[in-house]
């Protein structure tokens, strides 16, 4: 006699009710969790604005830091950050794009290419503070660049290099094969194909990765602390060999002061930081969105 389980509709229905209730509870909890994360963030960020907004004025944006809360400002830090962004992008982007092209187009599936893959993945996972002490040893100390903008930019370049390589490779990979084949069929060499077909087609994606890297450079603090950008800087740098401060560093300095006023000034600094950061994030996302549409 075959063994069978006859499940009565009633039994099934009772169990099903319980399971459906559990599901409803879960959905409610999940939705609340999502809202809670969102709400907490909004709450926290709005407290930054409440605290910082009253210190944020033209004087704050155009003055050097000062011992007196009402006189202090963020000007040298803004200039320092600008230098850092320009230099870092100028160093890291060409190298990053070049190595992405090599890895994607020339190195094939050789062993070197695979180990490079792994190495770049590893570099992307190293904590930023370690890049900082590496930069401290190699650029500040051994190359005698001192605690200069150049040392800072070189350090940050190493930090964002793997990110740029990885995202540029993805951009290059997304170029349809057919386009390349047409170019080859017209007698173009490999480099000509890359130069006149692959790069133009993937340029929007590469631009996205560059813009998002700028956002990253603006927000990076730890490596700059490590290479010693934490000096009390009154003047703006004149060359890449000058000492410097940056937005994040200035905020950190104010946060380390015991007076309550400086905590609020730090909040004002954070508003500036977040606005700049948000600006580049938004542009980056918009360009990526457009690029995505373009691809379709």
């Amino acid at each position: 006699m075959a063994k069978e389980v006859i499940l009565s509709a009633k039994a099934i229905s009772i169990r099903a009710k319980r399971r459906k209730l559990a599901e409803k509870v879960f959905v409610v909890i999940a939705f609340i969790s999502l809202l809670a994360v969102l709400f907490t963030l909004i709450q926290l960020l709005s407290s930054v604005f409440v605290k910082g907004l009253k210190w944020l004025d033209l004087q704050f944006l155009t003055s050097p830091p000062s011992r007196f809360p009402e006189k202090t400002g963020i000007y040298p830090a803004l200039i320092g950050s600008t230098w850092l962004i320009v230099l870092t992008i100028a160093i890291a982007v060409p190298i990053g794009v070049a190595s992405a092209i090599f890895l994607e187009e020339y190195s094939g599936k050789s062993r070197i290419s695979r180990s490079l893959d792994i190495i770049i993945g590893n570099l992307a996972g190293i904590p930023s503070i370690i890049y900082g002490i590496f930069g401290l040893a190699i650029f500040v100390r051994y190359l005698h660049l001192g605690r200069s903008i150049l040392a800072g930019a070189l350090t940050l370049s190493l930090l964002i290099l793997p990110v740029i390589i990885i995202s540029t490779r993805e951009a290059i990979r997304a170029v349809p094969r057919g386009l390349r084949e047409i170019s080859y069929a017209l007698g173009a060499t490999k480099w000509q194909t890359i130069r006149y077909v692959v790069l133009p087609v993937s340029s929007r994606w590469i631009a996205t990765s560059v813009i998002l890297s700028i956002a990253r450079v603006i927000g990076e603090t730890a490596p700059l602390i490590a290479i010693g950008a934490l000096s009390f800087i009154m003047t703006t740098p004149r060359s890449v060999f000058d000492p410097f401060t940056a937005l994040t560093i200035q905020i950190y300095t104010w946060l380390s002061k015991p007076q309550q006023d400086f905590k609020e000034i730090a909040a004002a600094g954070i508003i500036v930081l977040l606005l700049l950061f948000g600006f580049f994030m938004a542009i980056g996302s918009a360009v990526r969105y457009r690029a995505g549409k373009f691809k379709e």
Partner: peptide, 19 residues
């Protein structure tokens, strides 16, 4: 399916599985 609908009896489950 059986577990889903509340059958917990291990022996029963085994028999039905074999069947």
């Amino acid at each position: 399916g059986l577990r889903l609908h509340g059958v917990r009896d291990k022996k029963l489950l085994e028999e039905v599985c074999i069947e």
